[in-house]
Design a protein around this nucleic acid. Structure first.
Lengths: 252, 252
DNA sequence: CTTTTTTGATTTGCATACAACATTAGTCGG
DNA sequence: CCGACTAATGTTGTATGCAAATCAAAAAAG
């Protein structure tokens, strides 16, 4: 019934769906929980808080406060923090506690470049391996993107866009790739929303998605790879500007 | 003087050099250590043991034994294990302890595909950014590869080959990429040696290296990317056979 | 003799206590 | 009034103790 292993971050496959639907989940008061959760559970909760920007970059994570809040001792809290640290979501500095990691523009650009490669590879593999059912699903999500884009529904587009990309990752049949990209996306999450809300971006994305889908269906892996990389890289390019602007503000 | 942070696995940049030179380091008797090391140090030591195959896939990591061996309590040991778990080197199953992660062939192939993309991206970025000094170094390492290959010196080739690839990662000027590839290489390390010792492989590698270097010097990023991916993918391809063979043995 | 159950030993998970370090506030000297 | 040093406070790092879970071996039933 439990089996809440740690393995290497596996599980958590449907996290993104949850993100989309609930957006700000953890309004559930902790005291209402039935079972006293442990380190494994804490990881999930803290991760959610960071992903949903309840905890913002730079925020301090005080062991004692967290222990009180979750009604456990500091030991499991510390272990959860350690985990988050090595997955890159927080920084732990010796004797100085943990803070939500704040990324510099340079780091973000670097990470987006790697993300673009993940996506490119997933498109390449999908061009080889995707089933007809999966292709249909991918197309459906892009159709959803189009609908949302026409309505100027940024949040809806954001969600549908995620599902489109997710569909391609799934089609790649490479679980390791999916897992690594999930982790990276989590790390970028706090900065990601600022980007897709660019003026003409949504319409362009829908068109690019279409071309990528075509290449995948045609089984043209090089084209699929290349188009997808450029698609994501473009986002990264425009992202750089946005982010440089953000950097001047006090993120606080 | 200390500053042995955890951040996100940073530091440890020269680990690979150390690997090459020392190969089986930890013959240093633990009791001869001056300062009682702590969690951060443990991580490094255990990592080294796994990387140098002192600890083999499937081996159990007993908290108490480790605590005794390193002369600390179980607490820092547990935290170190947690860290290794989330960096993917070991598995922790609830109430069942930690074991060195054993990878299936399928997982290895998936990981090699991602590694190939890392390398491809690093070649692409190097084609844009490498300085003349770095180019010279890259060429030198391939020359070293040639010398070692002619002598049928597998270990020497292995080291020089690593340095060639390392040089290209360095030239990419993308620290995040370097870091991620370092982590992945660590995870693959235990299985990697079996691969480069294929019959004609060394000579072929030297030639492929040459072509990659040419593309980088010419600033042809697409070609550099593509050649490098194929170069590494090839290794993965031949690797698959070797690994399938290995799988039948009892790795024990 | 095989299969199942139960009991004991071992190991992990969590809580608490203590020690080391960092930060801050306060005091003293300039 | 300002800066440097010292003391007090709080937070993190480690050690140890205890409870719960797992695993192994012995005993009982078939």
């Amino acid at each position: 019934m439990n089996d809440a292993c740690i393995k290497s971050d596996k599980d958590a496959s449907n996290i993104r769906m949850r993100q989309i639907r609930e957006t700000a989940v953890s309004e559930v008061i902790e005291s209402e929980r039935e079972t006293r959760l442990s380190a494994d559970g804490l990881i999930r909760l803290l991760e959610d808080d960071i992903l949903n920007s309840v905890l913002k970059p730079g925020d301090r994570l005080d062991e004692q406060s967290l222990a009180r809040r979750f009604e456990v001792s500091r030991t499991p809290v510390r272990e959860a923090l350690r985990h988050l640290a090595s997955s890159g979501l927080i920084d732990i500095r010796k004797n100085q506690g943990a803070t939500v990691k704040r990324l510099t523009t340079a780091e973000l650009i670097e990470m987006f470049q790697v993300m673009a490669e993940y996506e490119g590879l997933s498109a390449r593999l999908s061009a080889r391996r995707m089933t007809t059912a999966e292709i249909a699903e991918m197309r459906n999500w892009n159709e959803e993107c189009r609908v949302r884009a026409d309505k100027e529904d940024h949040d809806g587009f954001y969600a549908a866009n995620n599902m489109f990309h997710e569909a391609i990752f799934h089609g790649s049949r490479n679980e390791f790739l999916q897992e690594e990209s999930r982790k990276l996306r989590n790390r970028l999450n706090a900065y990601r929303r600022h980007i897709t809300t660019q003026p003409r971006r949504m319409q362009k994305s829908v068109i690019e998605h279409g071309r990528i889908a075509d290449a995948i269906v045609a089984g043209d892996e090089d084209t699929a790879h290349s188009l997808m990389r450029q698609h994501v890289d473009l986002l990264a390019g425009t992202a750089a500007d946005v982010l440089l602007a953000l950097e001047s503000e006090t993120t606080e």
